[in-house]
Write a protein that binds this DNA or RNA. Structure first.
Length: 540
DNA sequence: GGTCCCTGTCATGCC
DNA sequence: TAGGCATGACAGGGA
């Protein structure tokens, strides 16, 4: 058959025979050996795939059963995928659809797929093949049945003893392969963490993640997938969470995820976790005073910022205070931080109260004049406070003074006060009101003085302006007189009598009447009678 | 120790 | 008429 011509003749002969058979009603593919062989291979491959899927489903069901025993419900692949879309979109069609027990576990999924982009395709294929290894299946079966009762070392020993000899030879390599895969994932996800070198430790960590009953919510998925989110990728490496401590990493992740610590009761429910968290802070190099920094540093900075911005409003301060009081049961604060916080909030509240009270707002200019007077004022204020406390008054001085009349009367009538208390409370109110009135009065008086001083300055300026105007008018008047004199002399020089002689200015003068007529009057007659003579006037 | 300034308090009148 | 306001006067305390 090596001869090409013979091969051609053989195939040609088959073709001729096929045509004859077709004519007799027989199909060609029955005689096509290659095609039949390919179909058989395809069928076998399909059967193998179905068998593998059945095995994987059995493993999945066993693992789910294991989870139910520990009281934990693993998240569905869809929910896991929803939190790791960029990681699992491409793998979903290959691995997740196989419902792998490893992919069913969020920790392993995240660890394995977090570096999917960095992993070559051959590694994914090797991972798929790894899941189909019967020795690994055997490990998982043993883990399912004995994980709750036996330590992992014993489980490993059982696997070694009960495995068939050929599988036992590869079991260690298989386990090492699995753990190496997980370890690689850890190294990618947490490059700064300390990875257990022992495969047993790594598997133990995985088992803890499988069977951790503390958190009914799918916390592992939150833990790891949240670590893979962009906003937490910055935080996680800083934490340097020990990968072997799943509880610690879970708590840190939860803390990072919540970031506002809005669920302190959950934190209180796990004192051990808190202790580990503190150890985590120690591991991170945080001192006690900064122990709140990572969890509420933003709030602290916000509080400091708002306080530095002119004492923010009371609601914000109360919000901050409530945030800190929520954190207080955590015992994560050092006493120094707590004391500083209390002082800050108290001071801010005092400032807020002062600003809200007209008494203090009106006192501001005077308070700036003397700081020591403020201390004396505090003592005076405390005098009524002490009186109120001594008489066991049910209200504060501030309320006594600032309550409206109706509310005040209702309050003192609702409380059974004796005569002394009633008298004192009314005196306190009267003094307080009068004190505020006196302050207002003094402020008005001061403002009035300031206004009067300003008015004096204005009047002085106005006087100067009038004086300057008067001087100007005097100058202008003088200039006008000079001009008028010149004009007078000029007109007088031009006057002539009937003989053509000019008039003597010492004997005659010009007089301007109201109708605009100018008369020439003899000076002597005009001076004596102040009326024109018979020979006069002479109109000019 | 006297003086000045600030503040609280009282008394009084007015609204 | 009670309560609040305005204001002069006085006293205490600090600088």
């Amino acid at each position: 058959m090596d001869d090409p011509s013979a091969q051609f003749q053989h195939e040609d002969l088959i073709d001729i025979l096929w045509r004859q058979d077709v004519d007799l009603g027989v199909e060609r593919d029955i005689f096509d050996g290659c095609l039949r062989q390919r179909e058989e291979e395809t069928t076998r491959a399909r059967e193998r795939e179905l068998k593998r899927e059945r095995e994987l489903e059995m493993i999945m069901q066993r693992l789910q059963k294991l989870d139910k025993e520990t009281g934990e419900f693993l998240p569905s692949p869809s929910s896991v995928n929803s939190q790791a879309v960029p990681l699992s979109e491409t793998l979903h069609s290959t691995v997740f659809t196989q419902r792998s027990p490893v992919t069913q576990n969020p920790l392993l999924s995240a660890l394995l797929f977090s570096q999917k982009s960095q992993k070559p395709p051959s590694q994914e294929q090797a991972f798929s093949e790894l899941l189909s290894r019967p020795d690994l299946q055997y490990y998982l079966d043993v883990l399912e049945s004995e994980a709750s009762s036996l330590p992992l070392d014993d489980i490993t020993e059982i696997c070694h003893q009960n495995l068939p000899e050929p599988q036992r030879e590869n079991s260690t390599d298989t386990l090492c392969g699995v753990t190496q895969t997980i370890s690689d994932s850890f190294e990618v996800a947490q490059p700064l963490s300390s990875i257990p070198s022992d495969p047993v430790e790594i598997l133990e960590t995985c088992i803890q993640m499988f069977s951790d009953p503390r958190d009914p919510t799918p916390s592992p998925s939150n833990t790891i997938y949240s670590c893979s989110t962009p906003e937490n990728q910055v935080i996680l490496p800083k934490c340097q969470i020990n990968s072997s401590d799943s509880t610690l990493s879970e708590f840190c992740s939860y803390t990072i995820n919540t970031s506002s610590l809005s669920k302190p009761e959950q934190l209180n429910s796990a004192p051990q976790t808190l202790l580990q968290f503190e150890e985590c802070h120690i591991l991170l190099g945080f001192d006690d005073s900064a122990s709140v920094g990572s969890v509420d540093l933003e709030t602290s900075l916000y509080a400091a910022d708002t306080l530095s911005n002119g004492q923010s409003d009371k609601d914000e301060l109360e919000s901050i205070l409530s945030d800190y009081t929520d954190l207080l049961p955590l015992s994560l604060h050092s006493e120094a931080v707590e004391a500083t916080l209390c002082e800050t909030v108290t001071y801010a509240q005092h400032q807020t109260q002062n600003e809200s009270t007209p008494e203090y707002s009106q006192r501001e200019p005077q308070a700036n004049l003397s700081t020591t007077s403020g201390a004396a004022e505090v003592q005076r204020v405390c005098r009524d406070e002490q009186r109120a406390q001594a008489m066991s008054l049910p209200f504060g001085v501030h309320d006594i003074i600032n309550l409206p009349v109706e509310a005040f009367n209702e309050a003192i009538s609702s409380c059974k006060l004796n005569h002394t208390q009633n008298s004192l409370i009314r005196d306190i109110r009267r003094r307080g009101k009068n004190k505020m009135a006196a302050q207002s009065c003094r402020k008005r008086k001061m403002n009035s003085l300031i206004d009067l001083e300003e008015e004096i300055e204005d009047l002085k300026r106005e006087k100067e302006q009038i004086k300057e105007e008067n001087e100007k008018n005097t100058r202008e008047l003088h200039e006008t007189k000079v001009k008028l004199r010149k004009l007078y002399n000029e007109v007088f020089r031009q006057l002539r009598d009937e003989h053509g002689n000019s008039y003597n200015p010492r004997e005659y003068k010009l007089q301007h009447s109201t109708d605009g007529t100018v008369y020439l009057l003899p000076r002597r007659t005009a001076d004596k009678t102040n009326t024109p003579t018979e020979d006069l006037p002479i109109a000019v």
